[in-house]
């Protein structure tokens, strides 16, 4: 199977092989017609598959190595990006990028996880596993944005915060905790997009904002399905069941009130048509920024507080039995 295709896209792989075989034959009218019809069938199969994606399949799409990253979206949605490095404490973390740019001619700050697409990049980016410095850099640059009254866009795409010795030594928990507390009172519009893998505390650590948007095939979870399966089923092979149980898909999270809006993706996922994905995202971001930007600062901050305050609703998620 071609590496671009995911395991559940097998039917597409079969047709691609047929097209490849036909391509070896001499070019004739009927052959070209056959190829064109196969291509149409691929599109319709793809559309079908993606309309009915199961939770585990969404996990695979969200983790696809060609899925557009923060820096891809920076290139497609923003102009004049200048990356800012370092937490002014210890180091520059490569798994979180920050920088200023212009969004429809408006100066903004961009913050986001970066996983890296090829092996060399993946290692450089630590596969998107941010260390404490990444969270501290994010907060430092967001305070810069606050000082100069610039809105913040956040792209979330990480498997988790880095679970290593140096992370613990340098207080990754404290870095995330501080972001949670400070982002809720950051006095500029903050718009969050869960664009890939929303991996537990490592994702949440930069994901507090006035609005939380989520791309159609992204996921957001308290624990990766493999980890959940290993702990609760004592069998990491039960990841499909765990993905189902965790309710980590965009429609599930919208229902629970954890995200505000689903941003549609192209039929085969953002990785098959990044430009189209960016166009859809652009429209959602522009509209959201206009809405949030129009609010008076105290109203905006109160609503941001209430938004997170109301996660876990009386009568729905818990009840009061008294006593």
């Amino acid at each position: 199977m071609p590496p671009e295709l995911l395991e559940f896209e097998e039917p597409i792989a079969v047709l691609l092989k047929e097209i490849e075989a036909l391509g070896m034959l001499p070019a004739t009218g009927p052959r070209d017609a056959e190829i064109a019809s196969l291509r149409r069938r691929i599109e319709s199969i793809r559309a079908d598959l993606y309309r009915n994606l199961q939770p585990w399949q969404r996990v695979l799409v969200a983790r696809h190595s060609s899925r557009p990253s923060t820096l891809d979206y920076v290139e497609m949605l923003f102009t004049g990006f200048t990356e800012l490095h370092g937490d002014r404490r210890f180091a520059d973390d490569h798994a979180i990028v920050t920088g200023f740019a212009w969004f429809h001619d408006q100066p903004v700050l961009v913050v986001g996880h970066q996983k890296g697409s090829d092996t060399k990049q993946k290692i450089y980016r630590n596969f998107g596993y941010a260390r404490p410095e990444g969270y501290r850099k994010a907060l430092r640059t967001m305070r810069l944005a606050e000082k100069f009254n610039r809105p913040v866009f956040v792209f979330v795409d990480t498997p988790a915060a880095y679970p290593g010795i140096e992370s613990e030594e340098r207080g990754v928990a404290e870095a995330i905790a501080l972001n949670l507390r400070e982002m809720v009172v950051l006095d500029v519009p903050v718009i969050v997009v869960v664009s890939g893998e929303g991996g537990s505390g490592g994702a949440l650590g930069i994901a507090i904002g006035d609005r939380v948007l989520m791309q159609e095939f992204a996921i957001y979870s308290v624990i990766p399905p493999e980890g959940c399966a290993a702990i609760l089923w004592r069998d990491s092979g039960k990841k499909v069941e765990a993905a189902e149980a965790l309710k980590l898909t965009a429609p599930d999270l919208l229902k629970m009130g954890i995200i505000d809006e689903i941003v549609p993706e192209p039929a085969g996922g953002a990785h098959t048509a990044p430009d189209e994905a960016a166009r859809l995202l652009d429209a959602a971001l522009a509209r959201t920024l206009a809405e949030v930007g129009a609010l008076a600062p105290d109203v905006r901050l109160n609503r941001r507080y209430e938004k997170f305050r109301n996660m876990g609703r009386l009568g729905t998620d818990f009840v009061d039995q008294g006593g």
Binding site: A177, L180, R181, E182, V184, V185, G198, S200, G201, L204, I208, Y220, S221, V222, I223, C228, I231, L232, A245, L246, K247, L248, L253, M256, I258, Y305, F308, R309, M311, G312, D317
Partner: peptide
């Protein structure tokens, strides 16, 4: 966080931290 309550349990981190911001 309590896995069996999924992302809702994750969000309790944000909720409590938000209340602590005001207390602070």
């Amino acid at each position: 966080a309590r896995m069996m309550e999924g992302a809702l349990s994750l969000m309790q981190m944000a909720k409590i931290s938000a209340a602590l911001a005001r207390l602070d």
